[in-house]
Design a protein around this nucleic acid. Sequence first.
DNA 1: CTCCATGCAAATCTTTTGCAATCCT
DNA 2: AGGATTGCAAAAGATTTGCATGGAG
Lengths: 147, 147
Amino acid sequence: MREEKADPVEIFVAFLRREGLNVTRSRLAVLRAIAAQPKHFEVAELQSSLRAQVSPATVYRTLGLLERAGLVRKLSFGETHAHYERAFGREDHGHLICQRCGRVWEFPIEGMRATLEKAAQTTGFSLREVVVEGYGVCRDCREAEPV
Amino acid sequence: MREEKADPVEIFVAFLRREGLNVTRSRLAVLRAIAAQPKHFEVAELQSSLRAQVSPATVYRTLGLLERAGLVRKLSFGETHAHYERAFGREDHGHLICQRCGRVWEFPIEGMRATLEKAAQTTGFSLREVVVEGYGVCRDCREAEPV
DNA sequence: CTCCATGCAAATCTTTTGCAATCCT
DNA sequence: AGGATTGCAAAAGATTTGCATGGAG
């Protein structure tokens, strides 16, 4: 019987040990802050939720590690700065992004990973993350200014 | 009988007129340069292909217009600077991005737009662009350094 | 004790903007 | 002519990096 680790902290600690890196107070604080964020967040939001606990440089460095550990996913939402989302404790899903107000809706994409897996196999690719995004205009914005 | 315009220049000109904007030498040069780019490109690449013809500021401004006109799509490929691809004369497709070497493979995603359309309808969203990306490690990189 | 990690500030890079000169229509 | 557009240089952001100091194993 295999025990699946679902706890992001355990996963992160295991990742760090495997890489010969230290488990530090700052790194854990960033992970904790992410768990407390809404589903997606910008780096600035994460930083202010960690105000004074962790420097910006370390927040960036830790996001990179969490990404490598598969605990966080980087998204852009069409903007010039990065957005992130937790990759743990969530079903696969896509995002609908309003190009006017920037709000984001999620929707299920079961089955889509299978399509990508197949394409990946054909290419000899080992697939880690799947990102599905739809850009357009939400109802509110359309009503506010048709066009 | 309706005549479908497939020519990007015609589409762009129509878009500009509709918006009360001028059809300028620079704008057309940017569009022409894009048509000559490989499927995806970075802004820096586009700029150097336009060396001295169009200033960087105008390249950025024009990319924004082309995006609004639906002739170009913005992608990030997980990097901090923008990538673009032509949105004309192409079937819907997804991208597989290697997180080690940055190379990109395309693959067909017929049917995926339908899934997004459905989600969009549910949300009252008017859908314009679809982006499907898979991140992972390509065969070459895996062979070069397993892990 | 030996590396690794952190903070700080400086450095990079990309993208955006203000403004005077120039181009479209 | 009259508003739109451009280039230039400066500004604004976001992210990365060098280095001396403090922390984990």
